[in-house]
Nucleic acid binder design. Sequence first.
DNA 1: TTGAAAGCGGTACCAC
DNA 2: GTGGTACCGCTTTCAA
Lengths: 337, 337
Amino acid sequence: MKKLTIKDIAKEFKVSISTVSKALNDSYEISEATKSKIQKYAKEHNYKPNFNALSLKNRSTKTIGIIIPTMLKYFFAQVFKGIEKTALERGYKVITCISNESYTKEVEIIEMLSNGSIDGFIVSLAKETEIKGDYKHLQDAIDNGTPIVMFDRVAQTLNCDKIITDDFDGAEKTVEFLYKNGHKSIAFVSTMSDFHIGKQRFLGYKKGLENVGLPFNDNLVINIFDRDYKKYESILIPFLEKNNIDSIITTGESAAVASMKAGIKTGHKVPADLSVIAFSNGILARHSSPKMTTLSQHGEQMGESAAKVLIDKLEKKNTDSLIKVITTDLVIRDSTK
Amino acid sequence: MKKLTIKDIAKEFKVSISTVSKALNDSYEISEATKSKIQKYAKEHNYKPNFNALSLKNRSTKTIGIIIPTMLKYFFAQVFKGIEKTALERGYKVITCISNESYTKEVEIIEMLSNGSIDGFIVSLAKETEIKGDYKHLQDAIDNGTPIVMFDRVAQTLNCDKIITDDFDGAEKTVEFLYKNGHKSIAFVSTMSDFHIGKQRFLGYKKGLENVGLPFNDNLVINIFDRDYKKYESILIPFLEKNNIDSIITTGESAAVASMKAGIKTGHKVPADLSVIAFSNGILARHSSPKMTTLSQHGEQMGESAAKVLIDKLEKKNTDSLIKVITTDLVIRDSTK
DNA sequence: TTGAAAGCGGTACCAC
DNA sequence: GTGGTACCGCTTTCAA
């Protein structure tokens, strides 16, 4: 039972294919009688215009390519949700590819999709790519007329639309929040120091300290490079033992959970004498005990925004590049006093 | 800077387009000299055969459609990872759509993609669809010659390939494990009693009790219908107070976390006098305190399997429908004694 | 009001 | 060894 085509319908009614095409598109050129019988037939027989033929003709696929480092992190899954929802609403499909933090994979994906498969890209950089700092593959795509919208892990030097978090400001205001609540010895735990966003969060932390008049102390900052969250705790225990710390800001959830556990193991009470706040987007925060206070990231909204900006660009509703900042919200739960 | 086509290359070398096509496909009909100069030129100018033209010609898009209820659950994200990886390895792209547990959405997605956008589907049913029991949209797709592979939440009555978890056996062996470790009063907490897989897990639980000679007690079973995990705890506290329970099997992570918290609040010690085991796939299990013992689900492997089975079918490497069971593993952590 | 034909970017058969 | 052409399914211009 193969697919019905315009040609089949033309044969059925003994008319030309152009008549059928026009009838289906409700053209004024065609008589009501002809139109209605053809439309009825098409509907009854579940006719659907062939996607590839249309894409070929229109030079537009109505699909967008997503390239993200992973789907296993809740933040990215949330962004994906926002993209998918918005895209569908506006009649676009999404092809989703995972770079798995690999530069090579990212390049290959761009290559693979740059053959008319998609109209534009939404990208968040692989870790390797960001460290390498080589964005030629993305620049090539742009030069070829394929718009790119980046989010979260964006390439500073690339001229394209960007959706980002207020990393700097978020960290800054978090320090101020902790200070106002009586904390004097605020530590910063980062698992993202390789990333631009990690650096911004760190700089915001420093700025926050400066704002409230606390000295910056290098010993209160720890950068974890290990990718294995299981080791976080053992790294943090000596950190907490050696230093007199009353609060911790972490760049992510796993580190925050580990911080709380390490805090408890080193004799602290959370939040009575150790407060913990994480840049986060979710799932662990709400299930940890105590429940985690977070600087909440609105991944879904970032996704919606990215899709909207890209599709507007594809449909020429906007033209010049913008940077959109989605601000974090401080969500106070039980890990801070 | 528009895309280079075969026609452009033909013009460049003043040869016919068929010569170019053959040269690019390394045909024996074309002289080495011509081939090499054309191939060189194509590579240098980054020529890529147009995807839509090829798909149109070949009636095959080398892309597969994924329809899943959500990406925010770790299990589905894992399955997605497996699918994406395997698909890419075999030269396929994936278009991913979220049904958001809605029957209507699921139907719309199938409609939308049934226009030659994809060669086959990988589906896990929306909750609504499963409750409704109406699989006509899927049957239609199959009848139209679009193969479907289902996973986890599969339609019993549909004749297609299926990748499932050993829900019944998993629950059964879990009861036996708990019994061997001295538990006599084993509760079953389900958030999936609407789903076939939830029913299977329950039946496996009953069978397990029977196997070890424990009586089945209706009071020790609780079905939670509330979708809000925040309420789980308040539902479970009276459940634990009223009954004398020494161990709990849950159908998912959130319920297990809530069970542990409720247990602690009702004066139990986990795992000393209350053991908790969850059907799970991940992330919470490893970060909870105590870390959760799980019946681990291998989502990624299910995804790999689903993609492999679908692609084999598309490429006619297999032909008849199979049901593949991916068995769970008992991963013992700290929530069981 | 309807139809013929070109074209989107390829492939492949057939002729030269 | 190279070129002409039909075709994949559809839209659109132009002619009838």
